[in-house]
Nucleic acid binder design. Structure first.
Length: 299
DNA sequence: ACATGACCCTGTGAGC
DNA sequence: TGCTCACAGGGTCATG
């Protein structure tokens, strides 16, 4: 499901509600997703305070001040179909309460209290169970095992520089699609945004990374953050099951020019004579592109 | 080093 | 109305 813009949107939504709140109760409805849940997850989280939410790559991180001496960070990865959903309690006259929604595949539930309201519910819902929930001591990010060998943040201008991009590209002959999907160079890009970025940069997805011209590299450097920021502005892309933490769908799917549009006319080919959006398979994933706009040319 | 395919899962939609 | 198949925002592992 979620690429960087979706995780960023969810993180911001949760942060607006959860920062400084107190976790009362944690319920684990199973023992694992892609990885086993940490043995001490429930014990550490209950009766702790949420300090901060942040994002690194496609991971959503929640820093907590625990009741013990050390502070901890919960790490969520949403895999393909994971959601983090907020529900507010509905009170009856006798002050008992319930929630309107009842989710299937609800694997992890956390109840928290803010200054305004008690018993707000956060549910981790993930039908395919490709996600991860993990727990680390906050202080030493170098020890987060999920962060081993991951690359730079594309929205950080100090990190995604022309020199960095150019150097990494020059070191690999992989197709540019594979390069951009590979989290060891630049994090956060997934299948949708790589297709959209390459289309707007007019670069054929099978071009060897090391063959890109200076102008093409400059174009990529511009479109990577541009597309991601546009998508964040639209609240991410909803294809089937992605929703923001409040249940709202994203809007960027309306702005997809190639992703999921096989056979449609290319929006950039004014003549209408091109063969239209074409789908090929790369790295086991569908690539959508326009062969007229994104010509294959080795330089 | 790198491409590929299998695998982890459930759900959905198309085609018959 | 069912069934079968292909495919789905990701990541990891074995194999060639």
């Amino acid at each position: 499901m979620p690429e960087l813009p979706e995780v960023e949107t969810i993180m911001r939504g949760l942060a607006s509600i959860m920062v400084k709140s107190h976790i009362s109760t944690v319920i684990l409805n199973r023992a694992n997703l892609r990885k086993d849940f940490p043995k001490n997850l429930k014990e550490i989280l209950e009766n702790s305070q949420i300090q901060r939410l942040r994002r690194r790559a496609k991971y959503l991180l929640c820093d907590i001040k625990s009741k013990y001496s050390e502070n901890w960070t919960i790490l969520f990865h949403l895999g393909m179909s994971g959601r983090l959903l907020i529900d507010y309690p509905i009170y009856r006259e006798d002050s008992s309460f319930h929630y309107q929604n009842n989710y299937k595949h609800n694997h992890f539930v956390l109840f928290f209290d803010t200054q305004e309201q008690k018993n707000i519910r956060l549910s981790y819902v993930d039908p395919r169970r490709f996600g991860v929930i993990d727990l680390y001591k906050t202080e030493n990010e170098a020890l987060y095992s999920s962060f081993k060998n991951i690359g730079i943040e594309p929205l950080n201008k100090q990190e995604l520089t022309y020199d960095y991009l150019s150097k990494k590209l020059s070191q690999t002959k992989s197709p540019i699609k594979n390069f951009l999907l590979n989290q060891k160079y630049i994090v956060g890009l997934g299948n949708i945004y790589v297709c959209e970025i390459l289309f707007r940069a007019k670069i054929h997805p099978q071009r060897a990374s090391s063959s890109l011209t200076i102008n093409e590299k400059k174009t990529l450097l511009k479109f990577i953050p541009d597309i991601l920021n546009q998508a964040i502005g639209a609240g991410g892309s909803t294809l089937r099951d992605y929703v923001q933490s409040d249940g709202e769908k994203g809007g960027f799917q309306e702005l997809h020019q190639v992703y999921g549009r096989e056979g449609e006319a290319c929006p950039a080919c004014k003549t209408g004579k091109c063969q239209g959006i074409t789908r090929i398979i790369q790295a086991g994933r569908s690539t959508f592109f326009c062969p007229s706009q994104q010509k294959y040319k080795e330089n």
